[in-house]
Structures are given as C-alpha cells and as structure tokens.
Design a binder for these strands. Structure first.
Lengths: 203, 203
DNA sequence: CATTTACGGTACTCATCGTACCTTAATCGG
DNA sequence: CCGATTAAGGTACGATGAGTACCGTAAATG
C-alpha cells in the first residue's frame, strides 16, 4: 500500500474546514472590508467552494460577523492608575487604538453593511464592547470609593459619556484616528466637569 | 392643423424631467430606503428610463443624495423658552422627531449605504445639520447671558454633548424613536450637571 | 466492508448596476 | 417655416456577485 492510514487527508472536514473558511474571510475583510468581501473569493482562498460556506452560514453578512468575532476576541485589562482621570484616559486611548486598527475599520464597514438587519446589528454592537458600560462603572466605582466622585455618577448613561463622544468623532469625521488631544479634551472639558457637576450644589 | 403649437408636449425635457426623476427617487427612498432604491424602478416610476437618469447623475448614490437633499430642505426655528433646560429639551425633541421621521430613516440608510465613499459621506453629514454646533452655542450663549451658565461652556464639544448622546441612542439601539424620558434623562443626568460642573469649584 | 455524511467541482438562476445604440420628439437658428 | 441639433424613449446587453442545485467522491462511522 502506498498510502498511510490517517495521514495527509487531502480533504478537510468539520472544524478544520470551518477554521480555514473563517481565516480566509478574516483575510478578505482585512484586505477589502465588508463591501469587498466576495463569497467566491473567500471560498477559493480557503481552498474550497461556496457550498461549504453556505452549509455553515446563511449569507454573506453572517459569515462576515462570524469572522469578525474571531478577529476581535482579545480584550484589554482594566486600567487602575489610582486616579479617575488616568483611568478614563487609558480606557479612551484603548478604545481609540481599537477603532483605529484594521479591526476597527472592519467593524465600521460591517456596521454600515448590516444596518438594515436589526438582528445582526444588535449582535455586532454587543460584541464590539459598546454595551460595555460595565468597565466604566467599575473604574467609576473605584473613584467613588476613593471619594473622588459622588455615588450619583454610577449610572450607565453618565458613565459612558466619554466613550460615546469618542465614537461620535469616528462616525462624523471620517478620520482613521482621533488625535490624543481630543481625548484629553473630552476628559477635561466634559467628563471630569460632568462628574464634578454631580456633587450636591451647596444650598 | 389639428395640433396646437406649444400645447401638451408628450415628452418632457430638462428641468421638468429632472424634477420628475427626483420625485420618483424620493418616493422610492420613502418606500424602500436606500438599499431598496432600484434605478429601473425609479426610471419607470418617473415615466422614463435609466438613460435620462445617468445623463444627470453618475450613479445610484449620487441620485439618492440629490433626492434626499430635496426632501430635507426645511429647518426648524430655534427654541427660546427663557430657560436653558427648556431650550435644550426642545432642541433634543426636534432632533428626535427629525431622526424618527421617514426622512430620518432615509438619512440613516443613506449614511450606511455610502459609508465607503468619504466624499458623499461628508456631503451628507454637512447637510444633515450634524455640524450644527451653531444652534447649541446660541442657546448656551443666551443661558450665559442670563447667568445660568458660566462662559467656559461655550465650547463646541461641550455644547453638543446632548445631541451626540441622542444620536448615539439611534445608532446603537436600532430603535425607530427614542422615548422622551431618555431625552429628559440626558438633560437632567448629563447635560445640566455638565454645565454645573463648569463653575469654578471653591478652593 | 457497506453506509452515511459532507466536501469539491461546476454550472446555473436571478437581480441589478451601468453602458451602448438607435429611433424619434422637441427646440432652435436661419 | 424648415432643416439641424439636442435630448428623450426603447431596448438590449455586459458585468458582477449572491445564493442554489446536482453529482461524483473522499472521509468518517460502525
């Protein structure tokens, strides 16, 4: 016999094939964004054909979101500088780096590409850490414990103001990266004054 | 002669035809949004064919933006309730109504549809009155004049915080309309405290 | 070793953008 | 008033890309 058993299977299946497809899709996203992601190209890049893709995902958008999910798995640890201003700035810088990276580009092209499908849109927003008022409440909680801020600020809408403003910069300008001085401005002109404003005004 | 001169021209030209096309495009946008706007349908709805369209606009996106421009010509007058809180709330409610209207739907579908074309994107953002920090500075200026707010708040990034948060609601949730209590929350939990926080803290 | 599963190859339908070409009506200059 | 020019209408077509259908065959399963 010229062939080893269980050696060099020329035809992949299951998880192996699925990973190959996802990696191909990720590469396509990085190269061309969502609008340029082509099912035939993904298939041939993965060394397979569209059947294998459509057996796993119902359409282009679903595949792309799955690929993006794989791409953006990592999450940075929470900063803890011992001071609210430092923590906020660190968190903002992290978000800025994230949205400025190729990953961020893809996120944006995906967000606009699936805008007409509320289901997928919700999936993306959750996954993109936007809903993450959690981290903001955590660092604010520490500030409250230190006496740097009053407990009234422990409110999702208040806590996330800074990152919402940052996202707004990305959305309205078409810029690839928000300059650091804008982050500082957001912190010093908006976020910290907002926290201060929540102290009881002396009657 | 059985035919009057200059009577009942069966074939429109120039401006008349252009208007007919734009009205048809507006109707299509209202019915199906940007992603559903089909050049053949626009043409047949206008009683003409694609040639007449492509002679005037280079592609689908340009036609859609022209149609949107026509749709969103009006602009509301500035509120002046004599009190900052009332003015802010009125402005927010106006923006909420605008973005909740069919016009707002179209704007959103257009924004996501042309996201890969920075040129058109910029056109839309300008035109949609987003850049309008002007109105916010105006009502804040009145508040400063009344002594309701310190002059430090006359800063575009501070002034527009409320409307940026409102837009964020539209973007992240897929909701058709933001409930009024959210607007109130934005004003009372964020905007007014932010203004207060800009008073000199007593040292 | 027989059977079932699922991959690979290929070809197809369908929708839709944008273009080409030709005929004919409206307008304009002489 | 009439011929020339311009722009509309009709229709057909090329190109692209999503999603589907079939069929033969390799890999897993027992």
């Amino acid at each position: 016999m010229t062939e080893e058993p269980t050696a060099a299977p020329t035809r992949r299946r299951g998880a192996a094939l699925e990973q190959a497809i996802l990696r191909a899709a990720v590469d396509e996203l990085l190269e061309s964004g969502y609008s340029g992601l082509n099912m035939d190209k993904v298939a041939s890049r993965a060394g397979t054909n569209k059947n294998a893709i459509y057996r796993r995902w119902p359409n282009r958008a679903a595949l792309s979101i799955a690929a993006y999910r794989q791409l953006s798995a990592a999450s940075a640890p929470l900063p803890d500088t011992g001071e609210l201003r430092g923590d906020v700035l660190e968190l903002l810088r992290g978000a800025n780096r994230h949205w400025s990276s190729p990953t961020g580009d893809i996120l944006r092209s995906l967000l606009s590409g699936v805008a007409d499908d509320p289901e997928l849109l919700a999936q993306l927003h959750e996954q993109s850490g936007d809903a993450g008022s959690g981290m903001w409440l955590t660092i604010l909680g520490r500030a409250v414990a230190r006496g740097e801020a009053p407990p009234e600020v422990l409110h999702p809408r208040v806590a996330t103001v800074a990152v919402v403003l940052l996202r707004n910069e990305f959305v309205t300008r078409g810029v690839p990266t928000v300059p650091d001085n804008v982050l500082v401005e957001i912190v010093d002109e908006v976020y910290l004054p907002l926290i201060r404003g929540h102290r009881r005004t002396p009657d």
